[in-house]
Amino acid sequence: MALTAFAGSPAATGSSGVRRGGRIALLLLIPGIAYLLLFFLAPLISLVMTSLQSPSETVFGQYDFTFNWANYLQVVGQYSEQILRSFLYAVLATVFALLFSYPLAYFIGVTMRRWPLVQSLLLILVVAPLFISFLLRTLAWKQILSDEGFVVTTLKALSLLGPQDHITGTGIAVVFGLTYNFIPFMCLPLYTTLERLDLRVVEASRDLYATPFTTFRTVILPLSMPGIVSGTLLTFIPAAGDYVNASSQFLGGTSSTMIGNVIQSNFLVQLNYPAAAALSILLMATILVLVGFYVRRSGTEDLL
């Protein structure tokens, strides 16, 4: 659609020079299309094929394509707990990241609008954690939240945590880690939207009898929907498939395993490729459906 529109509009003027321009545009598109075919479509087809394989009857450890769609039923039955938990954790992390980032982005993008230098400084602070490896930062949190760390000892001293309680290895630590790691991805799109928020419209709302809360609900929030939608998508999609935070080597434990960990273990430990592939396809399809539904419901098609 976009391709035909792009290539077709110059040709519509009818001059041959412009027609050649349209052909050049097509030529320029070839690397991108080739890239998508080679590195997206081909692996995707391969993954779908793998997900329909069953163990070879002759050679141990080998799998043959048998259109074995029962793989899907099997993984859903076996890992429903982890699948549901993944989406629950991802939703929680997205909500927490949004609640944390919105006031921050509003402060940077609106309150500090008259001081661009402060704005840049705060933005650098938001992005700064990304300069350090994601793994290192998550490991650092493991240290901070460990049983010997000051957080746990303080909470235990205050009797907010029982003597046998932990933070690492629990769902709380995993959701915390996901929230923390995705805050910059939530914050930046929110900032770009709020930075462009027309304050004259906010003034008009105040002039038309809307209290600050009503102004936020009826004007500021709807106008920041593009940022909210992109921020939540940038957080929710990777969080749902994340396997680092929930891994027992990092913040997770056996009771907080997510679908990413299951896929990893099926691929690399159990060498059950069809199950891992089926889970991957399932994850992707579910995210696609959820996201499509979400974007439609949030009514931001014409704002995006």
Binding site: R206, D207, Y209, A210, T215, V219
Partner: peptide, 20 residues
């Protein structure tokens, strides 16, 4: 008094219509 409590309305030079 806050603007939303004043018995006043403004026609803004920039119109300031709600775009959404």
């Amino acid at each position: 008094t806050k603007p939303y409590r004043r018995p006043v309305n403004t026609v803004f030079q920039s119109y300031a219509l709600f775009p959404h």
